[in-house]
């Protein structure tokens, strides 16, 4: 019961940070508020016993995001004020209410903190937990999964990062490469 109260408080803090990040005028303050969202999610991962995710979350969302936006934008840029359409607002409220009702009934029969996938013994995740140390030799089961059992997936992620960097370098380059006689 205790963990649920802690998670509710942390998620409320995160939601507050997200609302402030959307509503505040100064862009740099909005980025800092977004960093508190990453911080809250990182603490939630720590309480849910996922330290790998917590480290990545705090490094990416709380540090790297702020650094990137600080370096790219001027700090005194102000966000434009968006016009809120009443029909759209009503649709968003309806969608949120529907999600809350769906979540309340969908997660009612499940006990908090008990993964559904761990209740049967012949599925892959149970096999990883039982045989991971013997088959890969890695004490950290997360690393064993992402670099041994799911190596293809990590190779795909590396390819995605590589392609993204090539795209950024190509689009944001200093000098254009023009052919001779091509359009100026």
């Amino acid at each position: 019961m205790g963990i649920e109260i802690i998670m509710t408080v942390i998620m409320g803090f995160t939601l507050l940070g997200a609302v402030i990040a959307v509503e505040i005028k100064n862009l740099l303050s909005a980025v800092i508020a977004l960093g508190t969202v990453g911080m809250g999610v990182s603490i939630a991962f720590l309480f849910l016993m996922a330290p790998d995710l917590a480290i990545v979350q705090i490094a990416v969302e709380a540090l790297l995001l702020i650094f990137l936006i600080r370096a790219t934008l001027k700090p005194d840029i102000r966000a434009t004020h968006a016009h809120i359409h009443p029909v759209g607002l009503g649709l968003v409220v309806l969608l949120c209410l529907g999600l809350i009702v769906f979540g309340f009934f969908a997660f009612q029969p499940l006990e908090f903190g008990k993964p559904v996938m761990a209740q049967r013994s012949e599925i892959p995740s149970s096999h990883y937990l039982r045989e991971g140390l013997r088959e890969t030799g890695a004490a950290n089961i997360v690393t064993a999964v992402i670099l041994d059992y799911r190596g293809y997936d990590t190779l795909g992620e590396a390819t995605v990062i590589f392609t993204a960097v090539i795209g950024a370098l190509t689009v944001l380059r200093a000098k254009a490469h023009r052919k001779k006689g091509g359009p100026k």
């Binding site: 480290i55 990545v56 890695a138 004490a139 950290n140 690393t143």
Partner: peptide, 11 residues
């Protein structure tokens, strides 16, 4: 020490 403790190459 990514294969022993939390962390890893990405972090």
């Amino acid at each position: 020490t990514g294969h022993l403790t939390p962390g890893g190459g990405f972090a």
